[in-house]
Simulated assay, not measured.
Amino acid sequence: MEWFNVGRIVNTHGIRGEVRVLSTTDFEEERFVVGNKLAAFKKDDKKPTWVTIESMRRHKNFILLTFEGMHNINLVEPFKEGMLKVTKDQMSDDLLAENEYFFHDIVGCSVVSEEGETIGAVVDILQTGANDVWVVKGAKKEHYIPYIEDIVKEIDVDEKKIVIHVMEGLL
């Protein structure tokens, strides 16, 4: 089964079973809604524990969650430093607007210039607030490609290929 990260459990919060989550999804409103089911992976564990969100609130830069039936710190402590994930079946393209993609669709794509020169492959995506920046690992170094219309000209997630316009100073 293919899993996709939506949050990292960084710590517990209080003694009533709340966990402090650092979100890794653009769709927090859908992923962390009360009643939603997530797969909770303990640190270094390959088998998930399915949990249902009972409550959600924001606290500073974190999301605080409680899970149904886990109202004690001792029950959620084992999940500390673990991950919250969803399956591909739980992901919906309806969440995406035009020219938006899931991170897993972009990471791994090869990046080429309009002239056909291979630049590298997308290995990570940085969220800057203004626009995403793709980390592209080339043969000799990493390049940082902003996801903006002036640069990214074509994305084919089926072929795992991205065509960019190389502006002066970009590489």
Rank of each mutant, 00 (worst) to 15 (best):
W3E: 14
F4R: 06
F4W: 07
N5P: 07
N5T: 15
R8V: 01
I9D: 04
I9R: 00
N11A: 15
T12Y: 11
G14T: 13
R16M: 12
R16T: 12
E18W: 07
V19W: 02
R20D: 08
R20V: 11
E30N: 14
V33I: 01
G35L: 09
K37A: 04
K37P: 01
K37V: 08
A40Q: 07
D44A: 06
D44F: 06
D45A: 04
D45H: 01
K46F: 13
K47D: 09
I53C: 04
I53A: 09
E54T: 12
R57K: 14
R58K: 13
R58G: 15
N61D: 14
F62S: 14
F62E: 13
I63C: 12
L65V: 06
L65P: 04
F67V: 02
G69M: 03
G69C: 11
M70K: 02
I73F: 03
L75F: 05
E77A: 01
P78N: 09
F79G: 01
G82R: 05
G82D: 07
L84V: 15
D89F: 10
Q90R: 02
S92H: 10
D94W: 10
D94V: 08
A97N: 05
N99C: 08
E100T: 12
D105N: 10
D105L: 03
V107Y: 08
G108T: 01
G108N: 01
G108R: 02
S110A: 01
V111L: 08
E115H: 08
A121P: 06
A121Q: 12
A121E: 12
V122M: 02
I125Q: 04
L126A: 13
T128A: 08
A130W: 04
N131I: 14
V133H: 07
V136Y: 03
V136E: 05
K137R: 15
A139W: 05
K140R: 09
K141C: 13
E142V: 08
Y144S: 10
Y147N: 15
E149R: 13
E149V: 12
V152E: 04
K153R: 11
I155P: 02
V157C: 00
D158S: 13
I162Y: 00
V163N: 02
H165R: 14
M167N: 15
G169D: 07
L171T: 13
L171Y: 09
L171P: 09
